[in-house]
Design a protein around this nucleic acid. Structure first.
Lengths: 103, 103
DNA sequence: GTTATGGTTCCAGTATCCTCGAACCATGAG
DNA sequence: CTCATGGTTCGAGGATACTGGAACCATAAC
């Protein structure tokens, strides 16, 4: 019940940079991850393995971090696991149409 | 009058990769260049200097090349100069809405 | 408490990219 | 032809990103 689990920092919607978002989406693994989040809703990190084959969890964690820091996804602790979700509304309000064009 | 000037290779519309396009657009200098092309129409390379301050022409040429190889812009010889233009229709047909969302 | 698990962090190695000067190239002007 | 110009290409240095193993951390289960 103690909340020792670190809450990650997420950039505010108003401060999202288009170049950062585009860069985060320009990697095949990350783009696939985002598309799956868009289709299947919130997922745990372990469920985000690319179809092309499993990658080490440290690598996956790195890509998740890149997407989070760019403001594309949210990473929230949920018990022992973590819930990844797409920041749909935030992205839509800041960069209208961008996410739809990418998905 | 001889056409010794090299024609650059431009990727076919059908073969444009979304990750390549997103990556090409994820650099501030290149994004600004694309936006100017969208607003002002075809430009020469020398006219594409960023407002933040002039950069060496070799650097600028490198960014132009990145955009061309990703299929974002066209680079055609025009006399002694070169004409840069946005591949609007190609991008629109391959990735509908993407360019509009970025501009 | 002990253990197993989902996930992050640290670190090093490799690869890729950005930058920029220098050399080069083709064209148009004189 | 000679020269100036717009632009590319080459090469090297530095910065940044991707990958992956190992250590670590907090939680849930036992």
């Amino acid at each position: 019940m103690s909340a020792k689990t670190r809450e990650f920092t997420h950039p505010e919607t108003a401060r999202l940079e288009m170049t950062d978002v585009l860069f985060a989406l320009s990697d095949p693994i990350r783009l696939e991850l985002v598309r799956r989040l868009a289709a299947d809703g919130p997922l745990e990190v372990a469920e985000c393995q690319p179809r092309s084959g499993p990658i080490p969890k440290s690598t996956l964690s790195h890509h998740v971090k890149t997407l989070r820091e760019a403001g594309v996804i949210r990473n929230e602790p949920q018990g022992r696991r973590r819930s990844l979700s797409l920041r749909r509304e935030d992205l839509e309000s800041r960069f209208p149409g961008l996410l739809d064009a990418v998905l």
